[in-house]
């Protein structure tokens, strides 16, 4: 019980201190809107393109929302030593890091619903398999958050966190099949695409929204869950190795 009081309050503190601040809320709203608008105009196919673009926009909103915030907040707390308070608390490191990442996961899930709500006003979403979309969004939020955690633990400065995040994030826009099918990329890049977790998340969303997935959904879910476990385990090991010296 005591551990869950700590878990809940770490999450609440992060939500209040970082995620629910006006600049972050506007970032969560403006960023997906800007991406939607950009790809909508670029496609030139009018309202028909909305459902085609929606999976990519959902995935990118979650990816950018989670990685930007978490990488910065953890690095910032490490830098000003307030993270030591958490390490001194009598809760296991794994639970502590789950608490620390839960705020980012919720923020990522909330971000995903911005393009969905906008699309609701513009087109018919009745054919979307929500029972698949919702767990996919949650899994994409978790894997993106853990990617952010992995980045945060790998650097020591806030600016390094931003730079390192972009190193992963921007190539993922083009390599993960968000807006262009992976098959349309040069064959040389295909292995790289399949090494990135967002590829599998985007594939689930394409399948659930447009019925066009390139891999079995069960495989997509398993691979993305595997990425979550591996990224979290590596991050925990790195925290133990680098921060508890």
């Amino acid at each position: 019980m005591k551990r869950w009081i700590a878990f809940w309050n770490i999450m609440l503190k992060d939500m209040r201190a970082y995620y629910l601040k006006p600049p972050n809320i506007s970032w969560g709203l403006m960023f997906p809107v800007a991406w939607t608008g950009m790809f909508f105009i670029k496609s030139g196919r009018g309202m028909d393109s909305i459902l085609i673009l929606l999976p990519g926009v959902i995935a990118i909103s979650v990816l950018f929302g989670t990685t930007s915030m978490l990488a910065v907040t953890v690095t910032f707390e490490k830098k000003n030593r307030s993270f030591e308070r958490l390490l001194l608390a009598p809760i296991p490191l794994g639970l502590l890091m789950l608490a620390k990442t839960s705020g980012a996961i919720l923020f990522g899930v909330a971000n995903a619903f911005v393009p969905i709500v906008l699309a609701l006003f513009l087109t018919d979403l009745s054919q979307i398999a929500w029972i698949t979309v919702i767990p996919a969004i949650v899994l994409i939020a978790i894997v993106s958050t853990f990617l952010g955690l992995f980045i945060a633990v790998s650097v020591s400065e806030v600016f390094e966190a931003q730079t390192f995040s972009n190193f992963f994030r921007f190539p993922m826009i083009f390599l993960c099949g968000l807006f262009f099918p992976i098959e349309s990329l040069p064959a040389l890049l295909h292995p790289l695409s399949y090494l990135l977790p967002l590829t599998y998340g985007a594939d689930i969303l394409h399948g659930a929204v447009n019925g066009k997935s390139s891999m079995p959904l069960g495989l997509d879910f398993c691979v993305i869950a595997g990425f979550c476990v591996v990224l979290f385990a590596i991050s925990l090991r790195n925290i133990h190795r680098k921060w508890i010296v």
Binding site: A17, N80, R85, P90
Partner: peptide, 30 residues
């Protein structure tokens, strides 16, 4: 254990009261 480090390391964006309540919650206080 209670630890008072050589540098103040509370959360700059929280108030004094919220900082104390948060630290208490880390030890499972209601």
């Amino acid at each position: 254990l209670g630890v008072i480090p050589d540098e103040s390391n509370l959360y700059p964006e929280l108030s004094g009261f919220d900082n104390l309540c948060f630290c208490a919650s880390l030890y499972g206080m209601q």
